[in-house]
Amino acid sequence: MPVRWLSPSPVLRVERFSSFEEFRSNDILGGVTSTPLHSTAFSVARSILALSDSLLVLQRSFAREMEGNFGTDRGVGLVIPLAFHATMNGRAVGDSAIGIIRGRSPTRVVEQHANTYLMLRFGSDMHNRGWADFNDGIRLFELAPATMQALRAVVLDMFCLASSSGDLKEFDRPSRQMQETLIAALDNGLVRDCVKQARPGSFGRHRKLVERLDELAEALGGTDLYSCDLAQTLGVSIRTLQTAVQHVCGVSVHQYLRSKRMWLVRKLLVTGRPLLTVTAAAQANGFWHMSDFARCYYKAYGESPSETLARARGR
């Protein structure tokens, strides 16, 4: 969905500018001054979404030069391209690379035409996830096409849901799980193979950690399974938890926790309760994207969630 098609909602702020005089930079990743390359045909659209520990700005820009101390004074910033070609400090940058920014860095960017990209800032420095382990400056990370496409799909799904949401309180329910999904998509592209880096003889220790994770997940239920919180409760770094789950189970933390939440949904559906709906069961266990949920459910159980519910009701 093009940025200009998104509609404002109680959750999503939409800004549009038809002239450079109207345009103002946002401060999510600020510090640069823009100079348009053309005096006519100016059009900028951007949508702003705030989550629990992140701020996202999806923007369609304009042909321009930008120069200044680009970055953020807190947390870590990212630029995720949807359709992007520019030069940064004399280097060509395409739409296969994610930019990660820590602190502020002297930067000159030339956009010869309009680009579409997400500017993202996390309140946390994200040092503990196993990616972006540097202190200052801007780094570019090339992602495989399929990984980048999956990340873009998550971004667009988030903004589409925010655009269609009519209730701020209702949106608060899935917003943190949305952020978890976004972080997982970034992990998928940026975390190196942690099992290869595991110390010899660590499998037993990792198995015990996964057993503790299982006990904790069982106690919490389906809605509060967030990787950072779980790692903190278990007294380990998120990187250690990632490595343990990958080492023992062969999947990422996000996939592992999703499978647990999926099983809780199935347990609900097989009860066949008269007023139960698939959407209610999924949302009760932290699923916010219904089509993705249905696809993953079918892959896991060989039938759609609606088929499970219908069979439980004897239909």
Score class of each variant (00 low, 15 high):
102 R>E: 13
60 R>A: 07
263 W>A: 15
78 L>S: 00
164 S>W: 06
89 N>K: 05
205 R>Y: 09
251 V>T: 14
104 R>H: 14
189 G>P: 12
304 S>C: 03
304 S>N: 01
281 A>S: 07
268 L>V: 01
25 S>F: 14
297 Y>C: 11
297 Y>E: 03
27 D>R: 15
296 C>T: 08
289 H>A: 10
161 L>K: 14
50 A>T: 06
220 L>H: 11
184 A>K: 09
32 V>K: 11
37 L>Y: 00
8 P>C: 03
237 S>H: 03
171 F>E: 05
101 I>T: 13
88 M>K: 05
30 G>T: 10
264 L>G: 02
67 E>M: 09
187 D>Y: 01
166 G>N: 03
283 Q>I: 00
102 R>G: 11
62 F>N: 00
289 H>K: 08
287 F>L: 09
282 A>W: 04
41 A>D: 14
157 D>P: 00
87 T>F: 12
271 T>Q: 15
134 F>C: 07
261 R>H: 13
291 S>L: 09
141 F>D: 03
48 I>D: 03
243 T>N: 09
194 C>S: 15
49 L>S: 04
217 A>Q: 09
181 T>I: 02
234 L>W: 08
141 F>P: 02
35 T>M: 05
105 S>N: 11
90 G>F: 11
21 E>C: 04
90 G>E: 13
244 A>Q: 02
103 G>K: 09
216 L>K: 13
230 L>C: 04
118 L>T: 01
160 C>H: 04
174 P>C: 05
120 L>I: 03
225 L>A: 05
204 G>M: 12
65 E>G: 15
33 T>H: 13
50 A>I: 01
244 A>W: 07
196 K>V: 10
118 L>G: 02
139 R>P: 01
174 P>Y: 05
251 V>N: 06
147 T>L: 13
107 T>V: 10
315 R>A: 08
147 T>R: 14
273 R>Y: 05
280 A>T: 14
289 H>P: 03
106 P>F: 05
123 G>Y: 08
231 A>F: 08
10 P>H: 04
189 G>S: 05
16 R>A: 15
56 L>R: 11
129 R>F: 07
126 M>C: 14
129 R>S: 04
211 E>I: 13
185 A>W: 10
24 R>G: 06
7 S>Q: 12
255 Q>V: 11
